[in-house]
Amino acid sequence: MTTGVAISQSTGAVFQPGDLPKVNLSQIINLTDDTGMIQHALFNIPNRKEGYCIDDNARALLLAVLTCKVKKNPAVLALLQVYLSFIHYMQTDNGEFRNFMSYTKICLEERGSEDSFGRTLMALGFLANEGPSNALARTGADIFSRAYRHIDKLVSIRGIANSIIGVCQFIKYNYPDDLKRDLVIDLSNKMVRMYEDNKKDKWHWFEPVLTYDNAILPLALLNAYEITSDESYLLVAFESLDFLEFKVFHNGVLSPIGNQGWLERGHARARFDQQGIDAMAMVLCYQQAFRLTRDKKYLKRMYQSYQWFLGRNDLGLSLYDPSTGGCADGLHSEGINLNQGAESTLAYWISHMVVASSLKE
Rank of each mutant, 00 (worst) to 15 (best):
E264P: 11
R265D: 03
G311I: 10
R294N: 15
D295P: 09
P322V: 11
L292V: 02
Q307P: 01
R294P: 01
I277G: 00
G341Q: 04
D329W: 05
Q340G: 00
G266D: 14
K297L: 09
D273V: 05
Q288S: 01
N313T: 10
Q287S: 13
Q260M: 07
F309M: 10
L263T: 01
I277Y: 15
Y306V: 03
R271S: 09
L319E: 10
I277M: 09
A289F: 08
M302N: 12
L310H: 05
H267S: 06
A281M: 13
N313P: 09
L338P: 04
F309E: 10
G261S: 03
S323V: 04
E334A: 03
M280K: 08
H267R: 11
R269P: 06
G276P: 13
N339M: 04
K300D: 00
Q304Y: 07
G341H: 02
M280E: 13
L315V: 06
F309H: 12
Q287F: 01
W262R: 11
E264Q: 12
L263I: 03
G341Y: 08
W262G: 03
K296Q: 10
F290P: 09
L331T: 09
H267I: 02
Y306K: 14
N313Y: 10
K297T: 07
G341D: 11
Q340A: 03
Y286G: 00
K297G: 00
D273Y: 02
A328E: 08
R312G: 02
L317M: 14
L315Q: 12
K297P: 01
L299C: 07
G261P: 13
L319Q: 10
G276I: 06
G341W: 10
G330R: 13
H332I: 02
Q260P: 00
L317H: 06
G335M: 12
G326S: 11
A328M: 15
M302L: 13
Q288V: 00
G266Y: 07
P322A: 08
H267C: 03
Y303V: 06
R312Y: 08
Q274M: 12
K296C: 00
Y320W: 07
H267A: 07
L284A: 07
R291T: 09
R265W: 01
S305I: 04
Y320N: 11
G325N: 02
A270Q: 12
P256W: 02
F309K: 15
Y298Q: 11
L292F: 05
L292K: 15
F290Q: 04
V283R: 14
M302P: 11
D329S: 06
H267D: 03
N259R: 13
G341P: 10
W308N: 06
Q274Y: 07
A289T: 13
F309A: 03
M282Y: 02
D278S: 07
D321E: 05
G325T: 07
G276A: 09
N259T: 02
F290Y: 15
L317N: 08
A268S: 14
F309S: 08
S323K: 12
